[in-house]
Design a protein around this nucleic acid. Structure first.
Lengths: 243, 243
DNA sequence: CCGACGCTTCGTCCGCGGCCGAAGCGTTCG
DNA sequence: CGAACGCTTCGGCCGCGGACGAAGCGTCGG
């Protein structure tokens, strides 16, 4: 028998349990999901999202912060919480993919849900139909190469995006990938993440092409945005239609 | 203010909590970690890995199966459990990355831990120093392009790997990416995953270059393997040395 | 300077869920 | 066919941790 010593914890398996247990509480999951919107929120707002009282929320926030999942910033009498790193967002995203793939959870697609499917933020980039179509169009035009689960920006793409005023750092040799794909839980296809994805989101917001929907990760596409996405990226309104 | 209706659960945020809660139990995390080795294990073996009794393990396995995280296969009086899909493995991997990045968990690197750092399986591909060096060498030679967090196989690479007897399906249009990167929790750098990563692992096993270490995800590099990795990929033994 | 507000800490309650021993069911072997 | 084995089901124990109300601390507004 190859049984070495006692049944002792596999290296780091305990660490992963700790993290997962933190995410595993409904209230905390709601908090983290709310923060997947990408913007920092106050404890009060998070309390509302979590669906529990202020004291309970405070406890949750303390635990999440201590574990390094959240970063906190005091500002006046408010405390702004945000996800501590893109890694956290990616872990959440992977879990969403698993959850969406799993056995049918009864999830009546409400009107708000429909807005989320059309366009939403995924931490710091775009997701939903808008996000996936954006990836498709950039791929078709040879600006990014999407080969199954990998993504790469081409020379042409760098030029094109540069023309939009999107300054993509040449090769920062940073931890953060320039361009990676992210599995969309509603579309079950890929959209663009990484520094490029983040740049596309901020650009769209700055130009007023999309606006954030209050208390939600969903974003609404404005009039000017509808034109902008069509002329610049070739995304027709039909492609963004619910059905 | 924009408070719409009651604080009702964000779409699918509850689903993610369910999944995370399942992973969040230490015993279950140990089970899943053990199955990250990529091979199916019996309930008894998993009970040992989990560190709890058989009845308790059985309960855990039932929950994990029902949630769609595990697939089970009856064979004689044994029941073989394995991860239900690569998505699960990726979610676990993301969580490991978060856990490893978090505040210092006291994790005295034992001898077994050292073996894991040298070479181990990560679900169905190679990780550890061997895995990352493999990615490096393939990158240097222009067989794959690693640009930050993205990976792509070149024409040259396809030819090279074909010469090794690795038949990589041209472009299966499958869900499973041909080549993607996976963050190595011990090296804190990328190694290769996807269908390519899986092919590299099975190839190495078939040729006897590596052998699985019992009751562990670690793999040991054989004599012939040491030569093989050096001549075929240009990986010197020094690059695989612990320090 | 006092009251309203935002957030946290403290104390308490209580229910969910993990754990085990014993028993039950199916399979394999002598 | 009976005994050993692998795994699951059942029943009961117990402790962890999430929930809230009340109170405490810091900040902003008149």
């Amino acid at each position: 028998m190859g049984m070495t010593s006692a049944p002792f914890p596999i290296a780091s398996a305990n660490g992963i349990a700790t993290i997962a247990a933190l995410i595993g509480d409904p209230a905390r999951a709601n908090i983290l999901s709310a923060l997947m919107g990408g913007q920092a929120l106050t404890a009060g707002e998070l309390s509302w999202h979590a669906g529990v009282g202020a004291p309970t929320t405070s406890g949750h926030l303390a635990k999440l912060s201590e574990a390094g999942l959240l970063a906190v910033e005091r500002q006046g009498r408010h405390r702004y919480y945000r996800l501590a790193s893109p890694d956290i967002a990616q872990a959440m995203e992977s879990l969403m993919a698993v959850a969406a793939a799993g056995p049918r959870r009864h999830r009546p697609p409400g009107p708000k849900d429909e807005a989320m499917r059309t366009a939403r933020t995924c931490y710091d980039h775009l997701a939903g139909r808008l996000g996936t179509r954006l990836a498709d169009r950039l791929n078709e035009r040879g600006f990014v190469i999407l080969d199954d689960g990998s993504a790469q920006v081409t020379k042409d793409g760098r030029d094109f995006l540069g023309g939009l005023g999107l300054a993509i750092p040449e090769t920062g040799e940073q931890r953060r990938p320039l361009c990676r794909v992210c599995l969309d839980w509603s579309e079950r296809r890929f959209h663009l993440a990484g520094r490029l994805g983040a740049a596309l989101l901020t650009c769209s917001l700055e130009r007023g092409w999309i606006v954030r929907v209050p208390d939600s990760r969903a974003v609404a596409i404005t009039e000017v945005g509808s034109k902008g996405f069509a002329t610049v990226f070739g995304i027709t309104p039909e492609q963004l239609a619910p059905k």
